[in-house]
């Protein structure tokens, strides 16, 4: 377990050091790449709470990512055009304040997760995958056909949204914002994994009859996990919109749901830093292989096959060892502190 902690620390430091190094060398594109890693890792951290801890194979997480993105896009577009979002009995103005946008993104994604989760968690296995996929596609086609916010063309954010006291236009500053949020989400995810809730959720993934027999309802645990998971992925979507200064229906596409899942699987399902390792590896491959061939996805596919067949713990499992499987904080303490 020590090895995993060392690897996690190295990964965290590496992700922080790389853009600083790029900034010193005046390579803004590299900073943008690191920012993408941080944001996509954040989306993966969200999914990992449902997938890794809860065993919920959601193929609809692009839905939350897209909701977060559109929360940023819609609020910003109203602020840019000085038209209120709603003007009736009271007025809701658009805003370019990131703090407000994040709050809206988290709440909106969390609410949608609550409703879609309440329905889809009544099923399990392949039906759960299909239902979450269907919900995601509903949002995808809805945004395509909704002309008010750009329809298929999406929405542009002309000037990146602002954060009180910081210059978000500076790539390194924006990276640090994203990196801080990622770090907070990792901390949150670590605390959840080691909490009473995490213990019960994790047990429900392994054996739901056992959990019922001790008087705990797995459905409720999963719903809470799904909401937290969706909210975090939603926040990632809002940041992604600000990174690209653009949102479009592709944020809702099922391919994106698949990609988020790929980050988690590549890095290691249920590993705290799995999504970070996975997203970093993905972007690295995209850059390196993408430069060599347009068909780099083939090689990504091969890699994914190898991971699924031979390295179930993903990259982190390969480096830090497979033995203990579920690498959460609680296991560390259970094994170590007790004997």
């Amino acid at each position: 377990m020590r090895r995993e902690a060392i690897f996690n620390t190295a990964l965290w430091l590496g992700l922080l050091a790389y853009p600083v190094w790029a900034w010193l060398g005046d390579e803004p594109y590299q900073i943008t790449l690191a920012t993408r890693v941080a944001i996509l890792a954040l989306a993966g951290v969200g999914l990992n709470i449902a997938l890794g801890l809860g065993g919920l194979v959601s193929l609809g997480h692009a839905m939350f990512f897209g909701i977060g993105g559109y929360a940023a896009g819609i609020l910003a577009s109203h602020a840019q055009s000085y038209t209120p979002l709603y003007d009736g009995a009271f007025t809701i103005e658009g805003t370019q304040n990131m703090l407000v946008i994040w709050l809206v993104a988290v709440v909106a994604a969390g609410l949608v997760a609550l409703v879609t989760g309440a329905l889809s968690l009544r099923t399990s296995g392949v039906y759960f995958i299909m239902i979450t996929l269907a919900f995601g596609q509903m949002f995808y086609y809805f945004t395509i056909s909704w002309p008010a916010y750009g329809g298929e063309d999406g929405l542009s954010i002309y000037v990146r949204n602002w954060f009180p006291g910081l210059n978000t236009l500076d790539p390194l500053t924006f990276f640090l914002i994203c990196f801080s949020i990622l770090s907070l989400a990792l901390l949150l995810s670590w605390r959840i994994a080691g909490s009473a809730f995490g213990l019960a959720l994790n047990a429900a993934r392994q054996n739901e009859d056992r959990v019922r027999a001790v008087g705990i309802e797995p459905y409720r645990l999963r719903l809470v996990a799904f909401v937290i998971s969706g909210a975090i992925t939603g926040l990632a979507g809002a940041l992604y919109a600000d990174l690209n200064r653009f949102v479009s229906p592709t944020m809702f596409s099922w391919q994106l749901s698949g990609e988020i899942m790929v980050f988690v699987i590549l890095g290691g399902v249920a590993r705290l830093f799995g999504p970070v390792a996975g997203a970093a590896l993905f972007i690295l491959l995209e850059e390196v292989l993408g430069g060599v061939s347009d068909y780099w996805h083939i090689w990504l596919g091969v890699l994914l096959l190898i991971v699924v067949l031979f390295a179930r713990g993903g990259l982190i499992g390969l480096i830090a060892g497979q033995g203990t499987g579920q690498a959460t904080g609680q296991r560390k303490r259970a094994g170590g502190a007790d004997d």
């Binding site: 605390r191 959840i192 909490s195 009473a196 001790v214 705990i216 609680q330 259970a334 502190a337």
Partner: peptide
């Protein structure tokens, strides 16, 4: 934990 029949803490360390 089940016997306690209370809310399950989200953040405190269960161990």
């Amino acid at each position: 934990l089940g016997a306690r029949q209370g809310r399950l803490g989200l953040f405190g360390s269960v161990m």
